[in-house]
Design a protein around this nucleic acid. Structure first.
Length: 482
RNA sequence: GGCGCCGUACCCAAGUGGUAAGGGAGCAGUCUGCAAAACUGCGAUGCGGCGGUUCGAACCCGCCCGGCGCCUCCA
């Protein structure tokens, strides 16, 4: 039974979708005015894995993730660069898809844009005005927070507290300092759409209410995003949506923790961020391998907690993956088993599968699931020394592939992970032909057999300088990897 | 000031009432011509601190301390 920590209640709760076997989830995407950093990657990956696990558990998942493509920051960026907002958003939507593709994050079922939902946004705003929850001042429309009784339910804030601590300059047009814009009248040169209140554009929060309700219905199962969205964004979404429909909005609210640098939040304003493409560019590993390293790193901590980004953390993730792919390498070789050891391996696989599911059912505990993989790795290594049959070894490799699919891990073939892992420095092809390597490895095997250890060590040293590591097998032959 | 998240071994990190998972590093072994990989053994009488509830608490309650964050755009 899946249990999810729900920000709304502050508790872990059993998950029961509104419609059996179907999950409808909405996740706040990004504002497309710049490249994504590793913090965006975490959020995207976390919800991608949640979606995959729900599917793995037999649910049909309708997954909506939006692009905010009308916003102050976009306008500012467009003005700075002397281009249109459309050019900015098109560029960064493309960049988003590129980056997420490298990370192995699947596109959502629907990826709606705010600019394509103006009719819904206007209609929702009209409804709120009709219900007395919003008011018009000149060409602007504001949500009247004091008129909505449930305000603060998600972020656990009381209106009084908020006003006391408010450090925003108050807009005189607002009736209450907490009121927020549903519709902003257009200033000259800004993108604008027609509305009953004149030319203008939507406020930030209304688009998510409009788009989620359009694509998933007035009440749906899961709404997610980063923890910084709890207030005010999600609080405002609830006010708008529940205010308009009088119904429950999202039932389970999931929020992921931040990626930090030296215990500080990674953010644009602090300037301590690494973009996804920076990391891929700087990586000494191939794109596939770098993507997998990032996934392993990002999933090594529970989604709710903070996660410190560092070179060391990345190195540790790489090292962990090496352990798995080294095992897969061994599993691809021929083996000899006995009913005992083959049976033990089957048991170990079954145990790992159960642990994986127990972990993931407990609020998507990816670290527990990863630990299950690690434990299985150790058990298989032990059994390989005792001897297991080729068939069961293949089966074990397939189990890793199949369970790993939920995390997007362990999908690479031997040649992808173990061979072209290091990028060629300076465009030099270097010593990269498998045949050449194998020839030298064979020569070394012969030298070893002839007890010419000097020559054998020379060859190994040379190959090592080319980034190739040799592992001698008990039978006198050797396997190698890059 | 209000609210939230986090605080577990040298490092990373699970566990949320029944007596501290997992990984890395380190040390000592096995294997090896030497390596590499792999395997075996060793590590918190204690889970930020102090009280309380309980037969029993890292886990529940209260207070406190520390780190981070939200209350202005932010995954």
């Amino acid at each position: 039974m899946l249990r999810i920590y729900n920000t709304l209640t502050g508790k872990k709760e059993p998950f029961e979708p509104l419609v059996p076997k179907t999950v409808r989830m909405y996740v706040c995407g990004v504002t497309v005015y710049d490249y994504c950093h590793i913090g965006h990657a975490r959020s995207a990956l976390v919800f991608d894995v949640i979606r995959r696990y729900l599917e793995h558990s037999g649910y049909c998942v309708e997954f909506v993730k939006n692009f905010t493509d009308v916003d102050d920051k976009i306008i500012k960026r467009a003005n700075e660069q002397g281009v249109s907002c459309d050019q900015i958003t098109a560029k960064f939507i493309q960049a988003y898809h590129d980056d997420m593709g490298k990370l192995g994050v699947r596109p959502a079922s629907i990826e709606p844009k705010a600019t394509e939902h103006m009719a819904e946004i206007v209609r929702l705003t009209e409804t709120l005005i009709a219900k007395g929850l919003a008011y018009q001042v000149n060409g602007d429309v504001y949500f009247a927070v004091p008129q909505y009784s449930g305000y603060g339910r998600l972020s656990k804030r009381r209106l009084d507290d908020l006003q006391a601590g408010a450090r925003v300059d108050v807009d005189e047009r607002k009736r209450d300092p907490m009121d927020f814009a549903l519709w902003k009248s257009a200033k000259p040169g800004e993108p604008a759409w027609p509305s009953p209140w004149g030319q203008g554009r939507p406020g930030w929060h209304i688009e998510c209410s409009a788009m989620s309700m359009k694509h998933l219905g007035e009440t749906f199962d899961i709404h997610g995003g980063g923890m910084d969205l709890i207030f005010p964004h999600h609080e405002n979404e609830i006010a708008q949506s529940c205010g308009a429909t009088g119904k429950e909005f999202a039932r389970y609210w999931i929020h992921n923790g931040f990626v930090q640098i030296n215990k500080e939040k990674m953010s644009k304003s602090l300037g301590n961020f690494f973009t996804i493409r920076d990391i891929f560019e700087k990586s000494e590993w191939s794109e596939e391998v770098t993507g997998e390293i990032l996934r392993y790193f990002l999933l090594s901590t529970h989604y709710h907690g903070p996660l410190d980004f560092s070179d060391q953390a990345l190195r540790e993730a790489k090292q962990a993956l090496d352990g798995f792919y080294d095992l897969f390498n061994r599993l691809s070789e021929a083996g000899q088993g006995s009913p005992d050891t083959d049976g033990d391996l089957q048991l170990a696989i079954g145990f790992a599968k159960r642990t994986f599911n127990i972990g993931m059912d407990d609020d998507f505990s990816t670290p527990v699931a990863l630990a299950a993989f690690q434990q299985l790795r150790g058990e298989i290594n032990t059994l390989i020394r005792k001897g297991i049959s080729t068939e069961v070894m293949k089966e074990a490799r397939e189990e890793f592939r199949s369970l790993g699919k939920v995390f997007g891990l362990f999908q690479l073939d031997r040649w992808q992970f173990n061979l072209p892992m290091r990028k060629n420095v300076g465009g030099e092809v270097g010593f990269s032909s498998d045949l050449e390597v194998q020839k030298m490895v064979d020569e070394r095997t012969a030298a070893k057999k002839a007890k010419d250890f000097k020559r054998a060590d020379e060859i190994r040293k040379f190959l090592a300088s080319q980034g190739i590591i040799i592992e001698d097998k008990p039978d006198g032959t050797s396997r190698w990897k890059r």
